[in-house]
Design a protein around this nucleic acid. Structure first.
Length: 510
RNA sequence: GGGGCGUUAGCUCAGCUGGUAGAGCAGCGGACUUUUAAUCCGUUUGUCGUGGGUUCGAUCCCCGCACGCCCUACCA
């Protein structure tokens, strides 16, 4: 850059270039400037006494004769979403936490200065209105405004009022805007809140205690996944963001808290997809003296209760297809599911390792050098049957080699008392009778260590303290994790996990 | 990681076989005392994601890159 260029380059700064680029924002900054000059620009002394939705619910049946006979004074506040200025009788629609209500701003009802000021306020501004309820001649319940105040000036314009905000990226990155203008987005997160509350209530009613275990783990455990790594300075210690709370929750069962649950975040340093966010919410629970049969009954009831709390029904529509949570969930073994959904395979083929290996390769899945029969059957299940499990289905009896924390079956030491729950072709929950034999668990950890040394990045670490805990004796216990984000996707008919996470992770903005 | 599609005004989108951009909304000015996507008249706004290439000339054609969405892979 030459000296000449330097001379003509104006002050560089984000604010400055934005002002030059966006005259809409510049205009609003000018308005704010003059508001500041006139007094307190951001007053905090207006206290609304009514919410839009409650006013509609309570007064929409009343007519103007009633309002005339007995006036209903109200103070409402909210963001101005629409404004219709017409000479001396204008309207504005404001939105509060509950919904929207229309303001009638007539020059004969408020002072002239306020009316003139109102004409220059913008969509997105936060207003406080004092007045009386009435009905317009089209029958819409409205507030006849007698006093109108600008509580917060909005410097940025709202998205276009008819089409709204549709850009997925902006919806995710600027969720605050999405929430302002898209009622469906608000509804999704209200539903999520209800699901979480319903699950918490369900657990508490069943005498589970809510606990909080560490998010920072010295040894990541409880799942097969790649962890996020971090470092604690004062302890000069490598730490991991937890991939699952499982091993801590089981320590609590050892300690005598026989029914515990934790609903919180897990972190996995893996790919992102429509079903995967680097941090996701899981509800894990453990109950002493229960087994996986009990867990399946219980999980079913919990999920049903969550759907009813959020939607009022256990019969849902997902992606245009019905999902019925009201009936007992089907239970199939891995082989049984393949036979049902991929009947081209004979039972003898399904017990033939060489055949399975070849068949899995046809589906383009990774090689399985050390995989035994059970793991091969599981892989074929995942390729052929899993995505077809639309109605809620428990798949049971997972092979021991892929279930290092689950109790082996008394009848067959190759399989575990484990299930995964699939709905709409997606895994929603995973549970099992817990392995409480400390010596067996130590052996399983050793096998995982070998797998890790052989290059399996997701294999588990040996957790000596967890073994020590088991050596004190853990009662026979059932434990299960429910993927809350995926459950909310199902209940809110959302196609992407990002639609049910308020601030999904995205690449850094360019 | 692989594949597909996309990126044009603050928002939603047009833009023909290449001649450096338009509409609606929003904004600004005006009219209007029951509108509700108010209406009517006038009017402002763009590094056409980014860097190269081809060309007299590129929003348009070619290549790279960035970002996004979808599919796929790992995974819950």
């Amino acid at each position: 850059m030459t000296a000449e260029n330097n001379e003509i380059t104006p002050i560089d700064g984000n604010e400055h270039s934005e002002l030059r680029q966006n005259h809409v924002i510049a205009e609003r900054r000018e308005k704010l400037k003059s508001i500041r000059e006139q007094g307190i620009a951001f007053p905090n002394d207006f206290k609304p006494d009514a919410l839009a939705a409650k006013l509609h619910a309570e007064f929409s049946g009343m007519e103007n004769e009633t309002f005339d006979a007995k006036p209903v004074p109200v103070k409402v506040a909210g963001r101005m979403m629409l404004k219709r200025v017409m000479g001396k009788a204008s309207f504005a629609t404001i939105q509060d936490n509950s919904g929207r209500i229309q303001l009638f701003v007539g020059s004969s009802n408020i002072d002239e200065a306020s009316y003139e000021a109102f004409k220059h306020w913008d969509s997105g501004d936060i207003l406080g209105a004092t007045g009386y309820l009435f009905k317009t001649k089209t029958g819409e319940l409205s507030v006849k405004v007698t006093e109108l105040r600008l509580l917060t000036k909005s410097l940025r314009p709202l998205p276009e009022k008819f089409h709204g905000l549709t850009d997925q990226e902006v919806k995710y990155r600027q969720r605050y805007v999405d929430l302002m203008v898209n009622e469906e987005t608000r509804a999704t997160f209200v539903a999520r809140s209800k699901v979480v509350a319903a699950i918490r209530n369900f657990m508490l009613q069943n005498e589970f205690m809510e606990v909080e275990t560490p998010m920072l783990h010295p040894i990541p455990g409880g799942a097969s996944a790649k962890p996020f790594m971090t470092h604690h300075n004062a302890l000069d210690m490598q730490m991991f963001l937890r991939i699952a709370p499982e091993l801590y929750l089981k320590r609590l069962v050892v300690g005598g808290f026989e029914r515990v649950f934790e609903m919180n975040r897990n972190f996995r340093n893996e790919g992102l997809s429509v079903r995967h966010n680097p941090e996701f919410t899981m509800m894990e629970f453990y109950a002493a003296y229960t087994d996986y049969h009990w867990l399946m009954d219980f999980t079913e009831q919990c999920i049903r209760a969550a759907a009813i709390a959020a939607r009022g029904t256990a019969t849902l529509i997902y992606d245009g297809r019905e999902v019925d949570l009201s009936k007992p969930f089907e239970r199939l073994t891995i082989v049984g599911a393949i036979q049902k959904y991929a009947p081209q395979y004979s039972l003898s083929q399904l017990n033939d390792c060489a055949f399975l290996r070849a068949e899995i390769l046809k589906h383009g899945t990774k090689p399985f050098d050390h995989a035994g029969l059970g793991a091969l059957q599981l892989a074929l299940f995942e390729e052929t049957a899993e995505s077809q499990l639309w109605q809620p289905t428990y798949i049971i009896d997972y092979p021991v080699e892929v279930s290092p924390l689950a109790r082996a079956s008394d009848k067959n030491p190759e399989i575990t008392e484990r299930f995964e729950l699939f709905i709409t072709g997606r895994e929603i929950a995973n549970g099992f009778s817990e392995l409480n034999d400390a010596e067996d668990q130590a052996a399983r950890f050793n096998a995982q260590m070998k797998a890790k040394e052989a290059g399996d990045a997701e294999a588990m670490y040996y957790d000596a303290d967890f073994i020590r805990a088991l050596e004190y004796g853990m009662p026979p216990t059932g434990g299960c994790g429910i993927g809350i984000d995926r459950l909310v996707m199902l209940i809110t008919d959302s196609p992407s996990i990002r639609d049910v996470i308020l601030f999904p992770h995205m690449r850094a903005e360019a």
